[in-house]
Write a protein that binds this DNA or RNA. Structure first.
Lengths: 246, 246
DNA sequence: CAGTGGTCTAGACCACTTC
DNA sequence: AAGTGGTCTAGACCACTGT
């Protein structure tokens, strides 16, 4: 007894629910196990389905649950650590193991990207689409913007859009001297196309990693990569080869 | 005529709403301006308030809106870039400008932290509470865990809890040799205490930055910092002194 | 006090997956 | 066809902020 704290600030129901279910997940459920459906759970806890859903949404946001329409709600495995460190400065595509080139087209970039590129909003750029696959799962979708003028040997600017052309642009990029790069991470919500590639619904929370690649004092390329926030933890290993396992 | 796309996949209402309002924000509103209240907006768009709220929630998640109970919904300023780079390896508290020491107590860490510390779950640690303030605003709340055994000169282990003791622990830490650090970023939701310090409601989305400080081959300290995801963009400047302004 | 956003309800229908 | 999560409604009341 003692500090029973009689609801000086009454806790919202969904918040309390989240705690209760969260504890149940730790003790009574195994990873991958499916929970009772939402109507069942709502009835069991004596709340409306909307309230129950509010609790489940939070747990999904924290990476503890995974919900799929038409299937059900399952207990999520711990988030996988995805290395995004920049200690080994390198152009994208240097370690071709994790990123798959999907496509490449020529277009004018969004205004925000043009600003980062220090280019006119209507300057045409290569737009390379890549997918990061880890343990058989797509964890990130990337758009890499490279102004045509920055890659000298036009690697088939008129070549048919596709993976081959994407690899061509990456190859040209790697000919340049990389002076440095800076990076930012922020919360966003998945655009429709990214959501599709990541097997999520549009609007799903994602971690947006924006990288600016510098060469000869200019911005040579900008990458905007959206990582699934539910399943990923971004890691920056800055201490030799040590990586946070967990 | 052309690609009118007759709803092959009917877009959810709230998604469409989000787009419409988002565009209106760009063209018709200035930063800081207050929007009409939710009931008014819902009526104007001919939807239920819950649906309107779903759209506003997304926009808030993306840092475009700011909502405060009892006050209203305002247009948010662009996210501020917060530097969290680790290029200059340093113990916490080395640049005392941005972090304010708030408190320090002795306790046993959560299980997950104990694991990172490579310590027994019941080993007592200093828990230093700090607040990161930028431009007059609290942007992050941190808990720094330092095992008592790691800091040699017990800096008043029984001293009264408070800022003075916090600074004492940081001072002791800085006597050690820092071998390296690694870091991870993931999405989380604010615990009640963090939410209070960050002036948000519990459950608000946050970016959780976990840092492990290594000394003499061991983990000397673990920091868990929760940044407001709505107002912050974490930056990692790895190219000299260049910072992404935006 | 009036006005705001936050919580909650009890329903309905829709889109998707699986059998 | 049956069962799942996703969307949407039209209300109600609560907690908080201002005046």
């Amino acid at each position: 007894m003692g500090t029973t704290q009689l609801e000086s600030v009454p806790e919202p129901k969904y918040w309390h629910l989240k705690t209760v279910i969260g504890e149940a997940l730790d003790s009574d459920f195994a990873v991958g196990e499916i929970l009772p459906n939402e109507r069942e759970l709502a009835a069991r806890f004596g709340v409306a389905r909307a309230t129950l859903r509010q609790a489940l949404e939070q747990l999904e946001l924290e990476g503890r649950l995974q919900r799929r329409r038409g299937v059900g709600t399952t207990v999520a495995p711990p988030r996988m650590g995805v290395d995004v460190s920049t200690t080994q400065q390198a152009w994208p595509g240097a370690g071709e193991d994790v990123w798959q080139s999907v496509d490449c087209v020529t277009a004018t970039p969004p205004a925000a990207v043009a600003r980062l590129l220090e280019a006119e909003p209507d300057e045409p750029v290569h737009v390379v689409r890549r997918l990061r696959v880890t343990q058989g799962q797509a964890v990130a979708a990337e758009l890499l913007y490279v102004p045509l003028a920055r890659v000298p040997g036009q690697p088939a600017a008129d070549a048919p859009a596709g993976p081959a052309r994407a690899r061509g642009v990456l190859r040209e990029l790697q000919r340049l001297v990389l002076d440095g790069q800076d990076r930012s991470v922020e919360l966003g919500s998945a655009r429709a196309d990214d959501a599709k590639e990541l097997d999520r619904l549009p609007g799903a929370p994602v971690l947006v990693v924006t990288t600016r690649y510098l060469s000869e004092g200019r911005t040579a390329a900008v990458s905007v990569a959206t990582y699934r926030a539910d399943t990923c933890k971004l890691t920056f290993g800055d201490s030799g080869d040590l990586v946070m396992a967990s």
